[in-house]
Design a protein around this nucleic acid. Sequence first.
DNA 1: ATCATAACGCTTTTT
DNA 2: GCGTTATGAT
Length: 809
Amino acid sequence: MNQEYETRYLKARRAVIAQAFRDLNDSQQQAVLTTEGPLLLLAGAGSGKTTVLVHRIANLMRYGSASDSNEIPDYITEQDVETLEAFLQSGQPATPDIDALCTLHPVNPWNIIAITFTNKAANELKNRLERMLGTAALDVWAMTFHSACCRILRREIDRLGYDARFTIYDTADSERVMKDVCRDLHIDEKTLAPRFILNRISKEKDLQRGPKEVAESAAGSGDYRAELIAKAYAEYQRRLREANALDFDDIILRTVELLQQFDEVREFYQRKFRYILIDEYQDTNNLQYQLAALLAGRWENICVVGDDDQSIYKFRGATIDNILNFEHQFQGAKVIRLEQNYRSTQAILDAANAVIRNNRARKGKKLWTQNPAGERITVYEAMNESAEANFVADRIFSLRKTAEYKDFAVLYRTNAQSNAIERSFKANGIPYRIIGGTRFYDRLEIKDMTAYLCLINNRADDLRLLRIINNPARGIGTKTLEMVQRLASARGVPLYEIISHAGDYPALEKSAGKLLGFSAIIEDCAALLQTSRLPDFYDTLLIKSGYAAMLSQKGDIDSRTRLENIQELRSSLVGYEENHPEDASLAGFLEEVALYTDIEQYDKDADAVVMMTMHAAKGLEFPHVFLVGMEEGLFPSLRCIGEPDEMEEERRLCYVAITRAKQTLCLSFADQRMLYGHTNTNRVSRFVEEIPPELLDRQGMAMPSYMNYGGYGTSPRPGRTENSSRQSWSEAPRQSAPRRTQPPIQSAKAAAPLPKLQPGMMVEHKSFGQGMVISVLPMGNDALLEIAFDRVGTKRLMARTAMAHMSVL
DNA sequence: ATCATAACGCTTTTT
DNA sequence: GCGTTATGAT
């Protein structure tokens, strides 16, 4: 082929590939077609970055490096070039024949790794890949940093002297270990909190400094605390290794060590991962950068996606430097900005841009959209936090003409703020669910049952053994255990080793029977693993351990939920087995449990308002968003005031929160707020003031209050009403699932005067159904009603709020 | 071993 | 103000 044809071929090839991705905008397309070499994608909020990631992988698998290379396969003829050009003229969709002419070294799915931070993001990626590319996409490594590392470790960690069936310790487990370490080393928890030590260890691990290095630098410093921390670090690490356990940091750290120390391991994975994609790059820490750099060492085809304006996890070791330095760390890196937003209205984007503009440490980026201007942003000033909560409830009712409950999200800075909102939602019959707080796998009974599973999987797991050896009670007391511990540490073996041979030790004469009984339970169940399926094995464990029996004997409501929860754990075992038909194993399941946090997907479809922290909302979007508690001292939090760097992180959090909204955004604050038992008076948040006034629609206290409530009354008085309502809404058990079948609640409240309610009257509430008024207690210009509903029992409601959703029969 | 009382915290927390 | 946890008494 002559040069002219070669040029024409390359041009046509690029055009064909670009046509396959014509649904994307120009910069998105560039991001998909730039396959070779390091690439930094600065992807603003709502700019379709997941779409880009998915299409990028599709391009790699379908066309290989063709869109970004001048290499021409030998077999291409002049005839082929003309075929391609004719095809481009025709405007037809591509056929396999055409694609074949445009493909260059197509990439096998198993040569691609896409790393995310959350399981949620990884799952979404997997699903979208499968939808687009079919089952071939399942061979792409689309997973979190931690699960990718675990997968590598299970194959290679024996080189570091660990057993491949290592256990994962979560934060709570680590804390338990550190507490024990502190006790044994006589470290006073008040001068040096275990949490603080763990934090420091985490930082050291991020810098790849082991106990030795830390001890050396502490030794010279004369810093007593630093020396203690070094000692605690060494002991902590010793115990983890003894128990064949890794904490979250170790999972990454050990992988990095393997790749650094063993040439053949590094070469294997470098060769394997020809293309590397990393999401949320602004949230990576040093260790994760090291990992990425090691994996990308051979091909340097590394594409990272991030947004410096959305970096909100610095407090956990994430360093924005990774994104700011990317171009230095990877020579010849290209940068592509994705700035078109497909999510929000212009007003919302303007507000977000106005806020983030006040930060100095930025790469600089301005979001724009073709979406309509939308409504102005509502700012509501409430008297106190319950008035704020009632306002949110009211606004949800009035927007419900055009939206479902699940279209709303209430975001707050701290979990503690959810209480006031929750109370108001319960009182108004608004279904809701709270994301965050206690995770399923953090519950007592689940931790107990997984402790059994962990011990069966890894007999060296002393931590889990101590948790369950006398739970349920087996008459194995502290004295016996002390003796076992002494014997074990003298011999340098795990506790279980002593327990399973209790008969050999005269010192354990009295309790040998009980100890052997325990080890018999473990061994019997473990034997079952060879022959039975996991759920059946679990059923036996429930019986043999006596755990289920213990709960059903108690019989109170609490124990009932616990029984249900341990059954729920069985369901996850069944689910796990279904997802891993080839390689289901106890170790694999436990890994999933340890690394898996979101159970949100459980009732994703439930029509309920979502409540969560602003941090948890990252990556999500909702038509209508409330940001509550927009007050100085709360958001931005007190600790950031006077700390410029932390204030910038706080502002980024605000930016993240604002950009979650698609259609409407409502900011609210309270003049007085009760939090942690104190009432505070706060000024409105600076973030609200940073938004140009013309974008805002101010409501609430600033104007006479009768204007806000359809022509009557004021909002409830602070203090009294709130106190009187506090004790009344306790009937719903905590963490109860939201009502699934909620009767539709219509329209806003009518602007009618308060009808005179009297005990004995029958009412119909739109959420609670029929009920009888039991008592009416006047309160300021409102009243507290006590109503016995047929379906949901007795509730106390404030008349003014309740009458909007209720009629007298 | 089990219950009661005191004491302590209390941003955010993808893993 | 509230919920969890550590410690001591029975």
